[in-house]
């Protein structure tokens, strides 16, 4: 019964995002833009939550996977978009959608592959090493992109321009719904106990027959995949991307959402992503204080309420005993 509910919720979310998308021309551009930002940040926060929250690892490089997705998908639409459209029978909503879907998937899969490459060596080690390695990976990606040839496919320090504006309300919120469903279904299944066991006690987990390394890598790969999708959506929303947009501070933004919402609490993390994105938008004039407030929040939260503002237990359904 519970399982049908989740299927239904997913379908409903997809239908609603399609519906809103179709009449999005009625919406004010400014508010639509904020909503799309909110959606992208929800995808980032929910996917990072699988790694940092449910699985108890600590990645500080989510923006790097976002960058891989953004660059990967943009290269598909920029370099191959035209020929793909031709094959699909000329420009039109269908050809455009198929092209974008392929681009997003290429971005997501590239990010997932990077997640696998980074995760394999570092996930054998303790959490604080992973934090540094992912931070380092974030830096490497940025340095490499910045030092590419300005005329080449990556555009050097200036990045890429003229990316087609394919991202719509539907794409963002459909992806967000799929991310939430996927991670929720995974974590709430018997299979998903493995993630939680890794977080709680790796040695006990191994003793219960759980391949902890595989779960850690899996969480990391899935998290990176959705970060890659978010990157693709971001690129085709902004239409220009540059390496600086995916620096360490972008990763910190997502970490703050996860910690504020409550590590391992899907609802909390979504709420935090929404609230912080909207706040950021309205506090633009106070940009210089923003990070001071964020950093103080991190410190105070860890001392006063490390479980987050809306911790996981709060929303757990009371099961019949």
């Amino acid at each position: 019964m519970k399982h049908h509910t989740s299927h239904f919720a997913l379908l409903l979310a997809l239908a609603v995002s399609l519906g809103v998308s179709l009449c999005s021309s009625q919406l004010d551009d400014y508010y639509l833009d904020i909503m799309l930002n909110v959606g992208i940040n929800v995808i980032l926060a929910v996917s990072l939550n699988l790694v940092n929250g449910h699985t108890g690892q600590f990645s500080l490089g989510h923006a790097a996977f976002m960058a891989v997705g953004a660059y990967g998908s943009s290269m598909v639409t920029l370099e191959m978009g035209a020929s793909m459209m031709r094959v699909l029978g000329g420009a039109g909503p269908v050809a455009e959608s198929v092209t974008f879907l392929v681009a997003l998937l290429v971005g997501g899969v590239s990010a997932a592959v990077c997640g696998w490459i980074v995760g394999m060596p570092s996930l054998r080690l303790r959490g604080d090493y992973l934090a540094i390695v992912t931070l380092g990976f974030n830096e490497i990606i940025r340095v490499v992109l910045q030092n590419t040839n300005g005329d080449g496919p990556f555009g050097g320090a200036l990045g890429l321009k003229g990316i087609p504006a394919y991202t719509s309300f539907f794409w963002v919120f459909a992806t967000a719904a799929i991310a939430i469903y996927t991670i929720g279904a995974l974590v709430n299944s018997t299979y998903g106990r493995g993630f939680l066991a890794v977080r709680d006690d790796e040695i006990a987990g191994e003793s219960m027959g759980i391949n902890t390394t595989r779960y850690k890598v899996l969480a990391f790969v899935i998290g990176s995949f959705f970060a890659g999708l978010a990157g693709g959506l971001y690129a085709h929303l902004r239409t220009t991307i540059s390496p600086e947009g995916f620096n360490f501070l972008k990763s910190v933004d997502v970490v703050v959402m996860v910690i504020l919402g409550g590590m391992g609490s899907t609802v909390g993390v979504i709420v935090a992503a929404v609230v912080l994105t909207v706040l950021n938008e309205f506090l633009r004039d106070f940009e210089q204080y923003r990070m001071i407030v964020f950093s103080l929040l991190l410190i105070v939260m860890m001392i006063v309420r490390p479980q987050g503002l809306l911790p996981a237990g709060l929303f757990q359904r009371r099961k019949r005993a």
Binding site: A185, T190, Y191, G194, L196, A204, M208, G209, I210
Partner: peptide
């Protein structure tokens, strides 16, 4: 004692069932 502290009694035992499961990740999705 090394129980999984954040899990319920039921879920602690459920963790041991993972390795006997016939249906893996795709089925869970």
């Amino acid at each position: 004692i090394r129980l999984f502290p954040s899990l319920s009694v039921f879920d602690n035992v459920r963790t041991s069932m993972v390795m006997h499961q016939q249906h893996g990740i795709t089925h869970a999705l």
